[in-house]
Design a protein around this nucleic acid. Structure first.
Length: 473
RNA sequence: CGGGCUGUGGCGCAGUUUGGUCAGCGCACCUGCUUUGGGAGCAGGGGGUCGCCGGUUCAAAUCCGGCCAGCCCGACCA
């Protein structure tokens, strides 16, 4: 069965890839998803890379409860207003109606800050840098698998600092050193980093920073966010400390997250007519050694290569496919659907000639360039360098695409026009607050604000800012 | 939540206009043999109260009413 055409029916193509690459399927409750083993392995690879960066930024992992007292959410006015429409509320437990309903967390600012209030006493307790990997629930009107599901997996970081500047600096550090670096170096997805308009900011934040990526259908996807919360939560939850002068102060805070939505972004940035393409740095399986058919010395040769590669590449990211009951064509297309970066075809003919046929998934559109016969002795080093090359090529290909889909606009109506196919860059003064609603009528929104040189503004009131507007998921 | 489309074995569909001769096709699955360098072939086989509930009728996948679910476009939303 063929995939739907990416050009003719993008949403259908997206769902076909998810089904045929065995990434995920719908769960029994509307908006929920079952993440299948291969899809989950992609998520685990993302987790491990993001987690390493979070730890490098100094945060530690912890775990907080799934259930939150309703009263906690109500402490921060904007926060509760922003989230109430999409809350799942537990009213019964143990066969009895609960005295106070319990919220299934849509995000954990409130429970975590209740703990922070106990943990922070003096300035020596700061900064407090905590992260958790968890599931959250937001009852979405219009779910789309991976992009917006009622339950999704993510990490959420929560921090407390002694000064506003320290909090702000940390939110920026996370944005660049964790998120942007991960998106570009691991996912090979270029992102615009910027500040959300007040209209688009997180409920309860004084400023929201974000990474925005461009999908192959010309729609934007928010890949991660990092919020500056000011003292909004510390005042409500009484998170105070004694500073060096023995004065009681409220802490300054941040929160930041990225989710399983990134799997959707990966598909929509790198997918092609043959399925998914996974960048090598992320790939749970980087190389599949496909035994074309059994024969003299083929299995032994494959196993020897696998061991050499496992050592060179680290981890266990080389797979041997010796399922010769299935045809060569079937197995080739299946691995292509899953997006494994490199396939090494090995059969009796190759072994006799002392070569292996190396096939690059990222070039699958160009069969001649994609396949090359490499002497067995050179294969391990050649594979290592090819993987590195593929990673680079995928990032530059995605960057060219994104850049070609970013155009200047002078008026809101021009921006709406350009946003039909990508990002429009327009002076923020021209949009202003009321313009934001007028473009919203055309399903186009301000994705983020940047300075002219692409750097982060201090606030949306700064002069000469540029707004990046687009249709979005 | 509004508009449109669709619900028939795991997936994709035909059949509904004109009620009965209707439970069918392709893929997938199982068994055997032959195959294997780009989605294998032949033979045999298993699996579906036709989304759910009710109604009309001698008779409903098919007609009527209600409900539910999925998808797309919006509204909403990180």
């Amino acid at each position: 069965m063929k995939l739907a055409s990416q050009a003719e029916d993008f949403p259908r193509w997206y769902q076909d890839v998810i089904a045929k690459a065995e990434l995920a399927e719908n769960g029994p409750v509307r908006g929920t998803m079952v993440i299948r083993p291969y899809g989950y392995s992609l998520w685990e690879a993302m987790q491990s890379e993001v987690d390493a960066r979070i730890k490098a930024a100094g945060a530690e992992n912890a775990y907080f409860p799934l259930f939150i007292p309703q009263s906690y959410l109500e402490k921060e006015a904007e926060h509760v207003e922003g989230f109430s429409p999409e809350l799942a509320v537990v009213t019964h437990g143990g066969g009895k109606q609960l005295e106070e309903p319990v919220i299934v967390r849509p995000t954990s600012e409130t429970v975590i800050n209740a703990s922070f209030a106990k943990w922070v006493q003096g300035h020596r307790d700061l900064p407090l840098l905590v992260n958790q990997w968890a599931n959250v629930v937001r009852w979405e009107m219009r779910p789309r698998i991976f992009l917006r599901t009622s339950e999704f997996l993510w990490q959420e970081g929560h921090t407390a600092h002694a000064t506003q500047q320290q909090a702000r600096d940390y939110a920026v550090k996370i944005l660049y050193e964790v998120y942007q670096d991960f998106m570009e170096q691991v996912l090979a997805i270029p992102v615009y980093v910027g500040l959300k308009s007040k209209f688009e900011a997180f409920p309860g934040a004084i400023g929201s920073l974000c990474c925005e990526a461009m999908m192959l259908d010309g729609k934007a996807l928010q890949m991660a966010t990092s919020h500056e919360l000011g003292q909004n939560f510390s005042r409500m939850f009484n998170i105070t400390f004694l500073d060096q002068n023995s004065q009681e102060q409220h802490v300054w805070q941040t929160s930041w997250g990225c989710s399983t939505r990134m799997v959707g972004g990966l598909i929509m940035v790198h997918g092609d007519s043959n399925g998914l393409r996974v960048p090598p740095v992320l790939a749970p399986i980087q190389v599949v050694i496909l035994i074309v058919r059994e024969g003299e010395g083929v299995a032994a040769c494959a196993e020897k290569l696998r061991q050499e590669l496992a050592e060179l590449l680290g981890g266990n990211r080389v797979r041997i496919d010796d399922n010769t009951d299935a045809s060569f064509g079937r197995r080739s297309t299946d691995w292509e659907l899953k997006g494994v970066p490199l396939r090494l075809e090995l059969g009796p003919r190759d072994v006799a000639e002392g070569v292996g046929v190396l096939v690059r998934r990222d070039l699958a559109g160009d069969k001649a360039a994609a396949k090359v016969a490499v002497p067995l002795a050179e294969l391990p080093t050649q594979i290592v360098s090819t993987l590195a090359q593929q990673q680079q090529d995928m990032l530059s290909q995605a960057t060219s695409w994104r850049d070609s889909r970013t155009q200047e606009a002078a008026t809101p109506s021009e921006a709406v026009e350009i946003a039909q196919t990508g990002f429009a860059r327009i002076p923020w003064d021209v949009i202003a607050e009321q313009g934001e609603e007028s473009i919203a009528a055309h399903a186009v929104t301000v994705r983020c604000l940047q300075r002219e040189d692409g750097s982060l503004p201090e606030s949306s009131d700064e002069p000469n800012l540029v707004a990046l507007v687009a249709r979005s998921y």
